[in-house]
Simulated assay, not measured.
Amino acid sequence: MNPVVHLWQSVRAIGFATYKEWAAYRSHMAVSLLVGPVYFLVQYMIWHAIYEGKDAINGLTLAQMLSYFGIAAVVNYFAFDFADWNLQMLVRTGKFVTFALRPMPHWLFALAQKLGHRSLGFAIECVPVFLIFLFVFRIDLKPAAPGWAAISIALSFLMNFMVNYCVGLTAFWLVRAEGVRRVFLLLKDISAGLFVPLSFFPGWAQHVLFYLPFQFITYVPTRVYVGKYELAGMHLSLPGIVGLQAGATAIVAGLMLLLYRQALRRFTGVGV
């Protein structure tokens, strides 16, 4: 059998098994139908108060700001990832040894798991929340360029996984990595534009954030979705920013593979 076909069949089988496993606990995901809209409602009230008497802030109208948070919420549901927590748990409990002996690298196994998990999440979380934002809150969720938006969201999916997996790999060097994980993920969410658009940060901070990979998780796919990208005084076309996102994703992939190899060497050394 062709090795590529065999690999794809393995990934598909792991993804489908994960899909069926989480389908048994789908009520856990369904909680998002309450959490997501409630969080957005809070944002809705806060920004209504901030925009009182103002037509626009930093070039964004109230409608555009609400669209930003609505789109960002849906993107984050789709790209949601817990590879960091899962990997650290495997290392801490010693169960990672079973994966070290398998022919498939654990990062690929974890990615296959995420594909299955998010396939279920797409149906239970993304679509219902999208419809709530569209028909209840009347948020404009029509993509300016559906093709570029789809590519950018797919790259966001991969970037979030690889960044989180790199965080999880710190467990091979740290005895208790939970504190590092929580601090890093908070900084990641802030730097990704989850809580406020990055264009609202001071100029010097925008220049720093532009060269970090985190903007490609939330801010970039959201701005591509609305059809306009701007950060640190730079305006890029959709092909330009998506191309930059693809390049950043490739660089982070290389970094993840390098850290993975180093982690396996350390794991083997400790085992010996």
Rank of each mutant, 00 (worst) to 15 (best):
G179W: 03
I251Q: 03
A253H: 00
L255P: 05
G147Y: 08
R12G: 06
R92K: 15
V252D: 03
A73C: 12
P37E: 12
G59P: 09
W204A: 15
G227R: 03
I153Q: 05
G179Q: 14
H106S: 15
A250Q: 04
L111S: 09
L198P: 01
T170W: 06
H106I: 15
L255N: 03
P213N: 14
H48M: 14
V42W: 00
A232N: 07
A253T: 10
F80H: 11
N58T: 05
P103T: 02
E52Q: 14
L187I: 11
R12K: 14
S156K: 02
D84P: 02
F82T: 11
F96T: 11
D189F: 00
I217V: 13
I14R: 11
L187M: 06
F82I: 13
V272A: 12
V224Q: 03
V35H: 07
E230D: 13
A171V: 07
F99H: 10
R92V: 10
I151A: 07
A17K: 13
L174H: 01
P197H: 01
L111K: 03
F40C: 08
A177C: 05
Q113I: 08
G271S: 15
L194G: 04
F214Q: 11
A63R: 12
F69P: 09
L66T: 07
Y219I: 10
K228T: 08
M65A: 07
A144M: 07
V208C: 06
A110F: 01
V5K: 07
P202I: 12
A100R: 08
V242H: 01
N2A: 11
D140A: 12
V196F: 00
Q206I: 14
G147S: 11
A56P: 04
K142F: 04
I190V: 15
A253C: 06
A123T: 09
G94N: 04
V167G: 02
Y260C: 11
C126R: 02
P221S: 11
V167I: 14
M159G: 01
G168Y: 02
H117D: 13
G247R: 09
P103A: 06
